[in-house]
Design a protein around this nucleic acid. Structure first.
Lengths: 150, 150
DNA sequence: TGCATATAATAAGTATACTTATTATAATTG
DNA sequence: CAATTATAATAAGTATACTTATTATATGCA
């Protein structure tokens, strides 16, 4: 069963493959959980980012949202327009920077986001519950990976 | 800075958000690394799965590849046709099950896969090197998450 | 055996996620 | 202050990743 083409005996020894698989599993779960709110995961992330950033700043732009959510600017633009169509947010002209758009949650958008936050937090709580106290270690490891690879 | 809508003080305490972010980082890196072979990550995963499964079985079908790679059957179908166009594999009629297609690597496909495997292993080795000996723990944790959530 | 059920593949449609290139405008600096 | 450089947004194009529905065929069991 050994093969010089593969450095590991089986896929379960490949951190990359495992990371990819667990994320796919997590994404499918989140997708189903958010389905009841008629939101995709990216839509939710941008809404939650907007809710978060709106607490500090009056004028949240698309690039602010892209930076905070880590969703690339083009995708951010596309998803925000979808969310505008759904009437969850408004995109206005920026007062001083005419290149930029100021994004604001509508009342409905804020409301949906807050409910969806509970859904996602519940899902995550369940998904990672098997880690128990080890969840803190998991977060530390992943944060380390992120900081070393960005 | 506290807000009853958010259960955590910041996004760095959310395992789900962290998982999503590190995977996005990993995916971007893999994408760039595989770019020199003119392969996407999904294409690579299916090719590597095919190389792997071909060692055990004469007749590897699309559903076999889907199950092994965890890529859903529809996406598997689409990606395999792209790989067929690239002449990296052939899709033949199954002898006994006429619903199924038998997938076989071409010589070029096998060759590309083997080189790409080295590229991916090198990338993963670098990406996870910061974990040091902790990589085994990481794999264990992730395997646990996968088995408990599937 | 014959039929209900399961399975393999895929068509069509929606929504990311990325790339490169473009437009418009800001900001910096010689 | 004019010229260069950087930035915000997005058009166009490619490739997943998923959903629901369909077609064809295989399989299990009464």
């Amino acid at each position: 069963m050994s093969d010089k083409n593969f450095s590991v005996k089986n896929a379960d020894d490949s951190s990359g493959f495992l990371l990819w698989q667990v994320t796919a599993l997590w994404q499918r779960g989140i997708k189903k959980a958010l389905n009841v709110h008629n939101l995709t995961h990216s839509q939710f992330v941008l809404l939650a980012s907007l809710l978060w950033l709106s607490r500090q700043s009056e004028e949240v732009t698309q690039i602010d949202l892209s930076a905070h959510s880590k969703i690339d600017p083009m995708t951010t633009s596309t998803v925000l327009r979808t969310l505008q169509t759904k009437k969850f947010l408004k995109r206005k002209e920026h007062v001083t920077d005419t290149r930029a758009k100021v994004i604001e949650l509508t009342d409905e958008g804020a409301s949906v986001t807050k409910v969806a936050l509970k859904t996602v937090e519940k899902f995550d709580s369940d998904f990672f519950s098997t880690l128990g106290e080890g969840q803190k270690d998991f977060n530390k490891i992943v944060l380390n990976l992120i900081s070393k690879n960005k």
